[in-house]
């Protein structure tokens, strides 16, 4: 039964993140939502490569084992985390500038571009 539990967590994290992005009015909370969707994606990749009872996918450290977890998704996740850090940093700095110019974090009031 624990087999599918991680996927449920992935789904929950994704849903909460998307709900924050779509329905919340505060820019910081929207940024948190984006980070949660990112976390859901990373967890999804890791869970894909997990094998019950598997060891670390490094030949020199694993010793005598029959099964290993898949290394590729871990490499993918590492890359995705690095990209995520870059995006989050940039997003927060843009929010900082928006706050400086508009004096608010409410998306309803940051609307000079329209039409």
């Amino acid at each position: 039964m624990t087999g599918n539990l991680p996927f449920v967590v992935v789904g929950l994290l994704f849903a909460i993140g998307m709900a924050l992005i779509l329905f919340d009015k505060n820019l910081i909370k929207i940024a948190i939502g984006v980070s949660m969707v990112e976390a859901a994606t990373n967890l999804f990749l890791i869970v894909l490569g997990y094998r019950t009872g598997g060891s670390i996918p490094v030949y020199t450290l694993a010793g005598e084992v029959k099964r290993m977890v898949l290394p590729t998704p871990q490499a993918l996740t590492l890359t995705a985390i690095v990209i995520g850090v870059a995006t989050t940093a940039l997003m927060l700095s843009l929010i900082m500038l928006l706050y400086r110019y508009y004096g608010t974090l409410d998306v309803r009031e940051i609307r000079r571009l329209r039409g």
Partner: peptide, 17 residues
């Protein structure tokens, strides 16, 4: 210019998702 920051943020949000 505030508009440029706003445009960039909008694009970033959609594009990240």
């Amino acid at each position: 210019t505030p508009e440029a920051i706003e445009a960039s943020f909008k694009y970033m949000l959609l594009s990240t998702i």
